[in-house]
Nucleic acid binder design. Sequence first.
DNA 1: TTGGCTGCAAATCTTTTGCAGTTCG
DNA 2: CGAACTGCAAAAGATTTGCAGCCAA
Lengths: 150, 150
Amino acid sequence: MPVTNQLVIEVQERVRSEAKRRGVRWTNQRQVIVEQFLLSGEHLTADALLARAREVDSAIGAATVYRTLNLLVEIGVASRVRLGGDSASFEPILGRTHHDHLICISCGRVVEFEDEAIEKRQAAIVKKHGFQIRHHRLEIFGVCPVCAGG
Amino acid sequence: MPVTNQLVIEVQERVRSEAKRRGVRWTNQRQVIVEQFLLSGEHLTADALLARAREVDSAIGAATVYRTLNLLVEIGVASRVRLGGDSASFEPILGRTHHDHLICISCGRVVEFEDEAIEKRQAAIVKKHGFQIRHHRLEIFGVCPVCAGG
DNA sequence: TTGGCTGCAAATCTTTTGCAGTTCG
DNA sequence: CGAACTGCAAAAGATTTGCAGCCAA
């Protein structure tokens, strides 16, 4: 699922204007971090993002990455997901539709999938309980064909 | 959803025999922790379980609770769930059918639900990708009627 | 007896925060 | 200029681990 430059630029723009609207400053570090985050196009941990960002600007600190990620989540451009391990992963919400995760408990490989039927059932359940849905997280754990295959 | 003593005893027995099979010792601390865990019948954090266990035996240490919970998860009698915050929650898998969670992001209330249709779709998706499913976790976040209601 | 447990405290690990200096607007 | 940001290091919080003594089998 390659991310086009066009899309990245678009989202960058959106983040930037939203930041301005909130009186949040646009620093060079944030530029680098957001850019690397969007370009990755995949779910990645704060630590992995820090590594990527440091390839561009080696002085960037971990705290700044965390602060920026939290900002992105708040703005609604990133989402935090739990993919098993101890640390959270983040992923860009570009123009992509919502998707869930299928995780191999042996090798850690993550397959993304979408399912309209599940989304619909969820909506129905939430309605039944009178909730207003915000977001959800579906993670299926199992063994992938490679790890299982004899 | 009250938990009957009968059920607790049954599960205790199962845990105990499984422990024996694995050459795992059955100590008094484990007895207390497992008992309190099963009696709670609800999802609770390691910390909450520690508190409960200490009401029975005030000398029990946090590490023992963690070690026991991990053991229970391994044996397949408990499952670890993420209900938002920083810490994991655990819940007993008794004779109960699998269920998922609907979580209020305002007050933290957790509603459990089951949905046959979702389970079926999941099975289909997993099969399509050639995975062998082990378990899954579906958490829906939203605002409950009480918090939303004017 | 003896290897697996236990509690404690120290160690890890991820994420947040305080602070003094820096920089965007 | 001044408030918001940054990196660093320390703090915080959850969970794990090392160790010396303890105890179930």
